[in-house]
Amino acid sequence: MLAHGSGGKLAHDIIRNSFVSSLSNPVLAQLDDSAVIEAGGRLAFTTDSYVVQPIFFPGGDIGKLAVCGTINDLTMVGATPLYLSLAFIIEEGLPLNDLKKVVSSIKEAAKEAGVTVITGDTKVVNRGTADKLFINTAGIGTVPAGLNVSGHNARPGDRLILSGTVGDHGIAVLSQREGVNFATELNSDCAPLNGLVVEMLNTSDNIHCLRDPTRGGLATTLNEIAEQSSVSLRIDEDKIPVREEVASACEMLGLDPLYVANEGKLISAVAPEDAEKVLKQMKKHRYGRDAAIIGEVKEENPGRVVMKTGLGTTRIIDMLVGEPLPRIC
């Protein structure tokens, strides 16, 4: 079912029950954004597939998304992204010009991030067996010796720093989808985050955890960190930056910005003594201008994410369950 691909609970179940259990090994079992392996130095290796619909959206397209998404996965384990592979599955009938546009944004995004596309593949399938264009990627980067950034490393007391507004990508894409089409000036936040992370890692040796909250949104990623690190997270609703356009669109569609996808944001757990200086450095970077400390890591009730609401009350933030579907009334 489609919901198995939503990035939420069902997606987790399928990963754990169908893949990790059969293909299990210590590297895969980490379930971080990239695998880190020893191969004459430490390498980070990741793969991803991109099936966004529509393939062109405000602020990007499937090509930029594929490059940025892969780079960001490498970056979230502290790796310096170096090489990408790209495989295209093209539906018969895709206009050549569309493909050219996608390739040109791949080139641009790779240039910005300083990575090289070194291998690729192309398949064309019958009309109807794919939706315009799917892209599969792999990415390789090097991890500096001694660096250990992982979803497992959040520690009680750490501050949670979010790099900017949430929900921009999901709402920008949704605004273009057939049948929704609401007018908005909103652009996807799709961006390579390696530059920002370099600045962060140069500022502090106490960055314990980095994650990019893509599908499933910030809420799901926070739950993953809480589970992986066996800690609880407390966040403050008023501190989470949300654009007014995103908040309004979510209100109209019955969605929650905390569960809407991002493609150019990261959440980080940083030791309390370094949090302010990391935040200050992030705010200087173009992809961290709206960064904010949104909460902290706690010891009690491991696995749980709790939010102080705008009204001053508290509630639990769960993982995304199923595909978020706009409501009736």
Partner: peptide, 28 residues
Amino acid sequence: TPEKPAGPCMVSAEGTCAAYYHYGEKDV
């Protein structure tokens, strides 16, 4: 549960059971 709902109140974005499941009834 919302993943395997027995009845509609656990499914709908406006369902009472879904709202209690997601936001309440656990000590926070």
